[in-house]
């Protein structure tokens, strides 16, 4: 199945990717980011915050965006 992934890491990405049925948000994050620090990101599915174990569905929109952007 295909899901839309938005991710600014690396070269940046905003496109559909094929994932296996039953893939969870945590698994997709590991595939796309590979970071051991998911707490550095806000991960949303269809513009809503989601639990790590949420199973993705066809056509879902997953955004992985930076958090705690602050200047002084």
């Amino acid at each position: 199945m295909r899901v839309l992934v938005i991710n600014n890491d690396g070269g940046g990405f905003a496109d559909y990717v094929d994932v296996a049925e039953g893939t969870t948000v945590a698994q997709l994050f590991e595939q796309q980011v590979g970071s051991t620090e998911p707490n550095r990101y806000l991960i949303r599915v269809n513009r809503q915050p989601c639990p790590a174990h949420q199973v993705l569905r066809e056509g879902d929109r997953v955004s992985i965006t930076p958090t705690k952007i602050e200047g002084a």
């Binding site: 806000l42 513009r47 955004s63 965006t65 958090t67 952007i69 602050e70």
Partner: peptide
Amino acid sequence: WVHVAFDDESIADFFDREV
């Protein structure tokens, strides 16, 4: 006057709008 902090949800909304 010495600090600015972006809202995390608003950043995600911004990414969605731009995409």
